[in-house]
């Protein structure tokens, strides 16, 4: 019997070509792989086998404690960084993420992730990931009240309602389904000090075989770019083309 859930309509924006823009708006690109928990990663500092494997490409090490939403206790994160500190690997007991603030292209990011997985997979003692997420946090350099021309009018929402007065915070979020998982889109001005628009896309798939990871990732990227492109209007595209 087909579950009712599978009959729900899914994300169907047409995929679009990803031309080489002169400038991208990505402030942070993150790929997170969740795996069957490894209790050894609760130790401080990181277990020797992980440190040894990562110290070449990621020589800087930090420890952080993260309180995730819905949790009562802080979770230890082992954070490894490249020499230029622009690439970060964050290792928690059930997840590893690769993050950069100097995103150049998906191919470049994918290559870096592939190498990381090659290093870590033998240590993670798993042949699958429970969740694979690809998230892009974009910053659109525009002022409040100038949404027209920058953002798809469907996303303007209440921000363009003068009767509501000045909004200290205007933040929207939606969660939807895709053929292979779900996505999350958040956009707006998260607090009164933020003068630039944040556009945060997060696509993910669940229960991914490690051998299929590099096939799933481009799909997440393509869908993510399709949504990103749909969110933007002409002024943003002109800016990205160097105009």
């Amino acid at each position: 019997m087909v579950e009712k859930e599978t009959l729900q309509p899914v994300f169907s924006l047409p995929l679009v070509e990803n031309p080489p823009f002169k400038k991208n708006l990505i402030k942070s690109a993150i790929c997170e792989l969740r795996f069957p928990i490894l209790t050894s990663l609760r130790s401080q500092p990181a277990p020797d086998n992980f440190s040894t494997a990562l110290r070449g490409p990621y020589p800087y090490y930090e420890q952080g404690f993260v309180i995730a939403p819905g949790q009562n206790e802080a979770e230890l994160a082992h954070v490894f960084k490249t020499r230029d500190r622009h690439w970060t690997v964050s290792l928690r007991q059930a997840a590893v993420s690769l993050e950069t603030d100097t995103y150049a292209s998906f191919e470049d990011f994918e290559k870096k992730l592939g190498k990381l997985v090659e290093i870590l997979l033998p240590l993670l003692d798993t042949s699958f990931f429970t969740r694979v997420g690809l998230r892009y946090v974009n910053v659109v350099p525009m002022h409040r009240g100038e949404l027209t021309g920058w953002l798809n009018p469907k996303l303007h929402g209440l921000s363009m309602t003068p009767e509501l007065g000045h909004l200290d915070r205007a933040w929207s979020e939606l969660v939807g389904r895709t053929e292979i998982g779900r996505y999350n889109l958040r956009w707006g001005f998260p607090n009164e000090r933020s003068h630039e628009l944040i556009l945060d896309t997060d696509f993910y798939a669940e229960d991914v075989d490690a051998e299929n990871l590099m096939k799933v990732l481009p799909k997440l990227h393509d869908q993510s770019f399709a949504l990103f492109r749909w969110c933007l209007d002409n002024k943003a595209i002109t800016l990205m083309n160097g105009g």
């Binding site: 993150i30 993260v66 819905g70 994160a77 954070v79 964050s90 993420s97 993050e99 997420g133 944040i198």
Partner: peptide, 10 residues
């Protein structure tokens, strides 16, 4: 839960 970012960007 969203994809984890080591340093939440905003």
């Amino acid at each position: 839960a969203p994809t984890y970012a080591a340093a939440p960007p905003y």
